[in-house]
Design a protein around this nucleic acid. Sequence first.
DNA 1: TATAGTGACTTGCAAGATGCAAGTCACAGT
DNA 2: ACTGTGACTTGCATCTTGCAAGTCACTATA
Lengths: 116, 116
Amino acid sequence: MKFERSNCPITNVLDLLGDKWTLLVIRDLVLGKRRYQEFLASPERIASNILAERLDRLLAAGLINRRAYQKNPTRYEYGLTKRGRDLEPILEAILTWGKKQYPGTKRFPKVQRPSD
Amino acid sequence: MKFERSNCPITNVLDLLGDKWTLLVIRDLVLGKRRYQEFLASPERIASNILAERLDRLLAAGLINRRAYQKNPTRYEYGLTKRGRDLEPILEAILTWGKKQYPGTKRFPKVQRPSD
DNA sequence: TATAGTGACTTGCAAGATGCAAGTCACAGT
DNA sequence: ACTGTGACTTGCATCTTGCAAGTCACTATA
């Protein structure tokens, strides 16, 4: 096992998730978003190139998976893997602290999907 | 209350802590480190300008405080405020996930301080 | 007295990450 | 034929990081 910066678990998590966007993509997936346009539509306005790069990284890291819901051109839907869903306690801890420190912030609601 | 990107608590936390270094400084403080050179000595090798900037931000955000332990030139020791200590559940959640995902990583030990 | 640390930063610049606008590609609909 | 949809890609300007070296006011050692 080769570590980027150190063998501290926190450091290794930050090497993967330590930026302003990656956890927001995870949040969107937890909320039920599945498609590219849905991620782009979130109020933080992620840039499309950043989103594409993050989806690649999360796929490579095994936190998400995707399935083609259409061919020619192939279009994908994304979902969390077990590994990705295991991040929920981290998101919950952040949410708890954040709501307390930033009065006026609110947990976003789950997305309604027609297919459900 | 004015929000940078959205009124999502997670987003606002990421605007403050969402990078590869800030949480490592917090980790070091939790482990008992207090002084500039101690933070610089951590195995991840934070650059001194980044460290100075992060300490400023954390001070401004009220997550840490400092006290001069010497004058001419003034030298400071840093510590976590209540607000900063409240981040521990987040660190614990990250630690738990990280240890599981990155076998071989280990929680760093508390620092021995002569003054204790 | 002279020289060499010590410690908390600051400065300058190169390298890398991010943000914005626009483009691509293979369709489906009108 | 013409417009729209959706998942990206590309180009380039700007912002953030990383690295090396410098500063400043001492204290310790020779």
